[in-house]
């Protein structure tokens, strides 16, 4: 039987990266990279969050689970062949103080899978260096991610700074904090709020924003 998020979460918590990778690679024979992220890895990590809320594991366990999950995401990514030709450019980062980065990596990977050239800058990136890199590389899209609700103001500040750039990148906002935020949150010209990977894929492929983005589900 195909691997379920719960089982995978247990492997992450047990630090069984080989076994986890093996099962994930089996899964990938029947499913897309996006399914892997959306249906398997994200629910597995959310499951880890539930276990913590149920006082079954500690934050120390979450560190280990994240490291294993990260390993799986990176290893699964290497298998993908890149599409040749001129590539559109996307830069992905988390604001200063934000440490959750698994979601960002998935976002990078999804862009790459769709033939984009990606600069994954990681979490906790100071605004100044973010802007500087953007000026140098001139990405068409800047994707910002936040998991902590306290990072929403920083996200707004970053978005505003990127909007000032003369080459006018499209700014995508996502992550747990964004998807549970008040819908009135940042509805500025040139800023797109994306709830999950399915919406991101739709946006990448059609360039259109999902029209249900005023009905956030609480995740």
């Amino acid at each position: 039987m195909e691997i379920q998020p719960k089982e995978l979460a247990d492997l992450f918590l047990a630090g069984e990266e080989e076994k986890a990778l093996q099962l994930v690679q089996q899964y990938l024979q029947q499913h897309s990279q996006q399914d892997l992220y959306h249906q398997l890895l994200t629910p597995a990590m959310y499951r880890i969050g539930e276990l913590w809320e149920n006082n079954i594991i500690s934050v120390a366990d979450e560190h280990l689970a994240t490291a294993v999950c990260d390993f799986v995401v990176s290893a699964a990514e290497l298998k993908r062949e890149s599409i040749k030709g001129i590539k559109r450019k996307a830069m992905i980062l988390g604001p200063e103080g934000e440490g959750h980065y698994i979601g960002m990596k998935m976002v990078s990977s999804l862009f790459k899978e769709n033939g984009w050239q990606v600069h994954y800058m990681g979490p906790n990136l100071p605004l100044e260096s973010a802007i500087e890199s953007a000026k140098r590389w001139k990405p068409e899209v800047v994707a910002l991610s936040a998991a902590l609700v306290y990072r929403l103001p920083a996200l707004q500040q970053y978005a505003a700074a990127f909007r000032e750039l003369d080459f006018k990148p499209v700014i995508l906002l996502g992550g747990r904090a964004v998807s549970i935020a008040d819908p009135s949150f940042i509805r500025e010209e040139g800023t797109v709020v994306v709830k999950d990977l399915q919406q991101l894929k739709d946006w990448i492929q059609t360039g259109k924003e999902a029209d249900d983005d005023f009905h956030f589900s609480i995740g």
Partner: peptide, 8 residues
Amino acid sequence: SNQLITLR
């Protein structure tokens, strides 16, 4: 963990 992130 942060150091690990930096190394990674």
